[in-house]
């Protein structure tokens, strides 16, 4: 059972598998640092695709000995992105990572990957899951979706939940508890988020969304604090013991993500799931620890 982010490497040790990480358009120093740290854990093999001489130069600058890192020379960013995806497609690597943390750079990997009818998606919903560790909450908590789905409809929300349930089950939580967030805990026809939440709860009850308990609408406080739920007269199996928080939209998820990191000083690891391989998408705001944990988290979904 993974209960802290620091358990990730322990879990990989028990899992006893080694995954290969392929990085497309590897350029950012931050990314290369994280990749080397991941390799040094002994659980991750690495292939970097990009401008080979620039990559070697950066590796030397950062004081890393890149001798056992495979580097494939491809000077065009977009071609490097495509090549990285081919690696996944051909089964040569199991984790995909974006090598650039600027906005344009992210599209190098995500654009070709997410395009319609991609054989890497097979009609599934791709979603981003951020797993937080906080001092004031007794276990890990997943927040979704911070990065991919802007304003998901009902069936997309159901898929986003299923993706997060898949991840939490990999952590050893057999039946994760899911809170569907809204501004209030009651159904209000002027707030579609509350209506979606009620419907999703019933879908879990009827077995349409499997292996989890869903309750919603719940306001954030009702979701994480049983006391707060009791105060509002809410009887819920999820309140105070939630594993997964589904935000109604990207804006809400994003603000929650940033507030947990910047104000609650939470630790986080993120993964994008739903494609044939997990994808690591990091940003400039991430710490070195976050980047490393995100790679390890992705490796945990592979065996």
């Amino acid at each position: 059972m993974i209960t802290r982010l620091s358990n990730l490497s322990e879990h990989l040790k028990e899992q006893g598998t080694k995954a290969r990480l392929v990085v497309g358009a590897a350029l950012d120093k931050n990314v290369l640092d994280a990749v080397v740290s991941a390799k040094n854990t002994g659980f991750i093999d690495v292939t970097l695709i990009g401008d080979a001489s620039a990559i070697e130069q950066t590796l030397i600058e950062t004081g890393n000995n890149g001798s056992d890192i495979e580097i494939i020379d491809e000077k065009s960013d977009y071609a490097a992105g495509e090549k990285a995806i081919d690696f996944i497609r051909e089964g040569k690597a199991q984790i995909l990572m974006n090598g650039q943390e600027n906005y344009r750079g992210a599209s190098v990997i995500t654009k070709p990957l997410l395009k319609k009818n991609s054989d890497l998606i097979k009609g599934k919903t791709i979603s981003h899951i951020a797993v937080f560790e906080m001092e004031n909450y007794h276990k890990l908590i997943a927040v979704t979706d911070v990065a991919i789905n802007i304003s998901p409809d009902l069936s997309t929300k159901a898929n986003i939940i299923s993706n997060a349930v898949f991840l939490m089950r990999r952590f050893g939580i057999e039946t994760p508890k899911v809170a569907v967030l809204a501004a209030v805990e009651v159904i209000n026809e002027r707030m579609p988020a509350t209506m979606h939440a009620a419907i999703l709860s019933k879908m879990a009850q009827r077995g349409q969304i499997k292996n989890c308990i869903i309750d919603g609408p719940l306001a954030f406080d009702n979701a994480i604090s049983e006391e707060s739920a009791i105060y509002k007269g809410i009887k819920s199996e999820v309140s105070g013991n939630v594993d997964i928080l589904l935000a109604p939209d990207l804006e809400t998820a994003g603000m929650l993500y940033q507030s947990l990191i910047m104000i609650a000083k939470a630790k986080v690891a993120s993964i994008t799931v739903g494609a044939v391989a997990p994808i690591v998408l990091t940003t400039k705001l991430d710490t070195a620890e976050t980047r490393l944990n995100s790679i390890l988290l992705s490796a945990c979904t592979y065996n």
């Binding site: 409809d153 009902l154 069936s155 009651v186 159904i187 209506m195 939440a197 009620a198 419907i199 709860s201 019933k202 879908m203 009827r206 349409q208 609408p217």
Partner: peptide
Amino acid sequence: RVRSNMQSTMDAAMLSKM
């Protein structure tokens, strides 16, 4: 079961939660 193309099933789910 809840079907997004059958409003009556979605109404029913929401009324349960209400």
